[in-house]
Nucleic acid binder design. Structure first.
Lengths: 153, 153
DNA sequence: TATTGTTATACTCTATAACTATA
DNA sequence: TATAGTTATAGAGTATAACAATA
């Protein structure tokens, strides 16, 4: 019987550790916002609409890096929860707009506070120099690789 | 009309940047392994089985941080692709084992090379000191928060 | 009774493609 | 004919709970 050739382990990759930590932070945040009845993707859409004029779904699709079909589905859920309203565009019969309801606008600061708290709980134990360094390295990577899509997963 | 109170932006959180970068790396890797006909979760299971004795699904569930139901589904797909085989355990009539087929064992080094290349392409542009620092900070966070589950998303 | 594993169900997120209505 | 948006379908991932077989 032949021995299996040695191959790299999952943990040999920086990408692995990045995903490990990122998933942990995201899952903790997801659990918090779900107590408020929304998912992370829904939070991202609510935040994108907050303080803005009614917005075309296609603009949201660009901003969130999702297809228009995905935006429709997400918006449907938020409309069903009475956090978002759809309206026909006055100038273009094809166009729709999405905007927060009053309840949606009230919810965003609550969710933003949860996001603040989640981040604080997770990263505050780090020495301040490490936090700053992490932030700089990550934004460096974003710039180097020209990343654009806002993550919602 | 009342102005909306100012709230933190998505990008004010380190968790946001972490997810941003992590998703980018993971999606690039997912695209690569999918050319070989497997998903990232399937790769994680294949790697876990590589070079090991036939393994109980429940052990894989622990190792991968998934439920037994999820493991069954994942294993079903890999069995259908002839990369994994199921067998009854000799000593316990309830128990099953999962193991790589020859094709599965041949595929793992190929996928491991893709993982190496993906990581290199993404992180090599960083100054070596930054890479080392990033690695240290991430493993520090893993330790501080007692994270255990291997990420497969 | 407890445990192993499978199956069923359901929900989120994703993408592609067909379709409707309007420009 | 192009564009805006919706709808339909499908697949991957997640989880819970019911179930069968065995211990």
């Amino acid at each position: 019987m032949t021995r299996p050739p040695p191959v790299s382990a999952l943990s040999d990759h920086l990408g692995f550790w990045l995903r490990f930590v990122s998933n942990h932070v995201s899952h903790a945040f997801a659990a918090k916002v779900e107590e408020r009845g929304v998912t992370v993707a829904e939070w991202v859409m609510l935040r994108a609409l907050y303080g803005q004029e009614p917005m075309a779904p296609s603009r949201l699709a660009d901003a969130m890096g999702m297809t228009r079909g995905a935006i429709t589905k997400l918006a449907n859920r938020l409309v069903a929860k009475s956090l978002v309203v759809r309206a026909a565009s006055p100038d273009d019969g094809r166009a729709q707009t999405l905007a927060l309801t009053e309840a949606g606008a009230r919810l965003v600061p609550v969710l933003a506070t949860l996001a603040d708290e989640n981040d604080t709980a997770f990263f505050d134990p780090l020495p301040p120099a490490d936090r700053a360094h992490l932030e700089r390295i990550l934004s460096d990577l974003v710039a180097r690789h020209g990343m654009r899509n806002v993550p919602v997963e």
